[in-house]
Each structure stands twice: as C-alpha cells, then as structure tokens.
C-alpha cells in the first residue's frame, strides 16, 4: 500500500541516513526548512488525517517550547530586543532557537517515517547480512516478546479469578507481579527447550547456513539509489565550496547566494521531497487505474 516501503531495505537505509545526516550536520536554515517540509509531507502521506491532526497538536507546543528555550538561556548575539531579569534577550538567540526547533522536529518526523517504513524484518535483513546469527536471534526475540506478554496476561487473569494478589494491598500486588513474572519466565524456558528441539529437527546447526530474505534489489531501487547519490553529491558540493555556511552568532550572516549554493538547495529539496513524490505518484496512478475500470 505504501509505495515507498516497497523499496529494498538497503536503498531505504541509505536514503534515510542521507537525509538525517544532512539535516543534522549542515547548519543551514534553508536545508533545515526543506528537511522539515519533506518530513511533514511524507508523514502526512503515511498517516491518516486523524493521526496527522494528533501529530500537529503534539509538535506545535514542542516547537514553541524548543524555540523559546534558547533565548531564555543563551544571551549571545548583538541585537538586543529587551532585558529579562537583567539578562539581554537577543534576536539572534531567538532565531537560533527557531532554527533549533525546526531541526529537532524535522529529525523527529524523519525518525517517525523511518519507523513506519523500516519494519522489523527489514531491519533484521540489513543487520543479518553482516552477522547472520544476530539476525536469527533478533527474529526469535521479536517472536518471543509478544508471546511472553500474552502469557503474562493469561496467568495474571487466572490468578485474579482465584482472588489472588488482587487485594488493595500494594505489596500483595507487587508480590503477585513478581511471582507471575518468574512463573512465566520458567514457562518460557520450558518452551524454549521445545523450540530448540524444533530447530534441531529442522537441521539448525548444519554447516553452511544460508540467509533468505524476501527482498529483491529491483531496477527501481537502483534508480532511487542513483538519484539519491546524485542529489547528495550536489548538496555536498555546495557544502564543500563553503556556500552553505551560515552563522547565527554574534550576528546572523551567511554566504550570499551562488550557483553551487542554489544547486545544493535544489538538490536537497528534491531529495527530501522524493518519498512524498513517490507516494503521490502512486496515489494518482491508483486513482487513474480505478477510474479507468
């Protein structure tokens, strides 16, 4: 359903790393705004209206708090707006605060998109390539956690129905929780014996284990990766020429707009908008196909 999540995990990892690293380490207001815009549009595409509205309600206060915190504690800068408790509050610190808040929220939103797109099996696949044993352990752990939780609740319920460990006394309840925890742990260990038997029965431990995944590196992955690399080159070139430098203290100053700088902005802008464009294209195509039927 989500077009972007259909890409190969490696392509996706490289994409997210490029965007996140650039947004975090290139201290440039345009870059930061682009990162925020891209993340916001992408997140809105991934979620339904209700979730997006909830997000906005959550991020706006966070934005205001982050933006206001900086001028309260940092008194650098030359343009003094007013004095508070005998301390100067400067325009530079204020703007720096806003930039900080933009970056913070952009990074948070990108991480959110990352967690939606990179499901556990993609993660395991990526790290499994490096350490095959680890990927199996991770996969087993991910299987184990919900099982443990379910069993815990079952035991808790059974005990409650006997009227055990559910009195008003706090220590009684705590004791019940601890006992349940230890019982479910030994239950799980007991089960682990059976799991290991099942693994052995299916040949675990034979030499030359291979690693299967359902992911395939398709042509569109190559295309996205190539785009990604090109756009990153364009962005980094701007940075390398020093055209993206920007200072907030003591006075706001940046390099004047030049060709490499402009190129970098365009490249990064396109890069951050890529997932949104891909999702949008998919949606339009989908609508188009439906309308044809």
């Amino acid at each position: 359903m989500k077009a972007f999540s259909g890409y190969h995990p490696l392509t996706l990892l490289i994409y997210f790393l490029s965007v996140l690293m650039t947004a975090m380490f290139l201290w440039n207001p345009v870059i930061q705004l682009e990162a925020l815009l891209g993340a916001g549009l992408f997140a809105a595409m991934l979620q339904n209206g209700k979730e997006t509205a909830g997000d906005i309600l959550f991020y706006i206060p966070l934005f205001i708090m982050a933006a206001l915190a900086n001028p309260l504690f940092s008194h650098n800068g030359v343009t003094i707006l007013f004095f508070m408790n005998g301390n100067p509050v400067t325009a530079e610190a204020f703007i720096y605060g806003i930039a900080l808040a933009v970056t913070l929220i952009a990074v948070l939103l990108w991480c959110k998109c990352y967690s939606i797109i990179m499901s556990s099996d993609k993660f395991i696949y990526l790290f499994g390539r490096a350490i095959p044993k680890l990927s199996l352990v991770l996969s087993m752990a991910l299987r184990f956690v919900p099982l443990f939780k379910r069993r815990f609740h079952k035991v808790r319920k059974a005990q409650r129905a006997m009227g055990m460990y559910s009195s008003k006394s706090y220590t009684d309840r705590l004791k019940g929780t601890l006992l349940t925890f230890s019982a479910v742990t030994s239950w799980s260990l007991e089960n682990a014996m059976e799991t290991s038997a099942s693994m052995k029965a299916r040949g675990y431990g034979l030499a030359g284990r291979s690693n299967f995944s359902i992911f395939r590196f398709a042509p569109h992955d190559f295309l996205l990766l190539a785009f990604n690399v090109l756009l990153m080159l364009g962005t980094l070139m701007g940075a390398a020429f020093g055209e993206l430098e920007f200072y907030y203290y003591p006075q706001i100053s940046g390099s004047s707009l030049s060709v490499p700088g402009l190129l970098a902005y365009v490249c990064f802008g396109v890069l951050t908008l890529l997932p949104f464009i891909i999702e949008l294209k998919e949606k339009i195509l989908w609508k188009y196909f439906i309308s044809k039927i």
């Binding site: 556990s120 996969s139 087993m140 991910l142 299987r143 089960n191 682990a192 059976e194 799991t195």
Partner: peptide, 10 residues
C-alpha cells in the same frame, strides 16, 4: 504445541 515450535517472527 503450536506456539513453542515456531522459531521466527514472520
């Protein structure tokens, strides 16, 4: 036991 024989998460 259907639960304890299953090894992986997917």
């Amino acid at each position: 036991n259907p639960d304890s024989q299953t090894v992986t998460d997917k």
